[in-house]
């Protein structure tokens, strides 16, 4: 048995889990409300990160400096980039999902049109930011680390954990206790009934996309800062694991996505520590995904039917 630094593993697991959870809550929200799989969520995640980068550096790699040369502090850049990501989400809905809502095969065609939009977003990002990696400039966040026992985690990674906590709590409060949240849940439950209750269902759809995408953008920003790496395909690797996370937690369930995220993050870290190799780490998510789909398809906290009885 290798000598394992458990506190370090715990910190690593929390970091990975927070990153997954933050990506997955927005992903699963759209599934819960609209019953569709939004495969462009990863592209919004990536664009959110780049948008914050542009605001911090005042520079677009493929085009040059922004006019005015304005450079914003990180926190302000993050808020603005989340806003932009949210608006991109609304655009995405109008472009890829809204026109297909009435189709009999709307789930499939919507999934495919979201792939199309993801390709377009990725192409634009490649053009604007070049295919190679970028990163937030040194000093965007204070260097240094938090220590726990024998483990240490850099501030930028701790920020991911904190951001995930704060945003998930805010989202939960919004969904549980506000009028808007109640309307969202009513639409998720039954759009027809919600319409009869006088809820503007289309507006709720737009707002859900805004919310989901703003969260997705935030996930991209904080993760990109933590691993100091941004590139136009950064969303792809997290996309499939994010799928595993929301299946694990139960499609459409926000608490499920959080639980699934941490479960996956900790399981991965644990497997690496115990087997002393990271070779099979990336397969864990998908083995879990497959097992859950076959054995308990509604996920850990979900109630939705996903297969024929």
């Amino acid at each position: 048995m290798p000598d394992i630094n458990w506190s370090q593993q715990l910190l690593n697991g929390l970091f990975a889990g927070s990153a997954y959870a933050l990506f997955a809550v927005g992903y699963t929200l759209i599934f819960g409300v609209l019953d569709i799989l939004n495969l462009a969520h990863q592209a919004i995640y990536m664009l959110g990160a780049f948008c914050a980068l542009v605001l911090v550096t005042g520079n677009v790699a493929g085009l040059g400096p922004l006019p005015g040369g304005m450079q914003l502090p990180f926190w302000l850049a993050t808020l603005l980039a989340m806003l932009v990501a949210g608006l991109l989400g609304i655009l995405l809905d109008r472009l890829a999902f809204a026109p297909l809502r009435k189709r009999p095969d709307t789930h499939f065609s919507g999934m495919i049109s979201s792939i199309a939009v993801a390709l377009i977003f990725e192409a634009l990002a490649t053009w604007l930011f070049l295919p190679q990696r970028s990163q937030f400039p040194a000093g965007t966040i204070r260097p240094g680390a938090v220590t726990l026992g024998q483990g240490a985690l850099s501030y930028s990674r701790v920020l991911v954990i904190v951001a995930a906590l704060v945003l998930v709590v805010l989202l939960t409060v919004l969904l549980r206790f506000t009028k808007l949240g109640k309307a969202i849940r009513a639409v998720a439950e039954n759009p027809k009934a919600a319409r009869l209750l006088g809820i503007n269902v289309e507006a709720i759809y737009s707002f859900s996309f805004f919310l989901s995408s703003a969260l997705g953008g935030a996930a991209g920003i904080f993760y990109g800062l933590a691993v100091s790496r941004l590139d136009p395909t950064m969303g792809r690797s997290v996309e499939l694991k994010g799928l595993a996370v929301i299946i694990l937690g139960g499609m459409g369930s926000v608490p499920g996505a959080v639980l699934g995220g941490y479960l996956l993050g900790l399981t991965e870290v644990l497997s690496v520590a115990l087997t002393n190799t990271s070779n099979y780490r990336d397969a864990i998510a998908f083995v879990l995904l497959f097992l859950i789909l076959v054995l308990r398809p509604s996920g850990l906290l979900g109630a939705r039917r996903v297969r024929e009885a």
Partner: peptide
């Protein structure tokens, strides 16, 4: 059902 087959096969 539905998109879940797509997800499983991607996995």
């Amino acid at each position: 059902r539905g998109v879940f087959l797509a997800i499983a096969t991607l996995g």
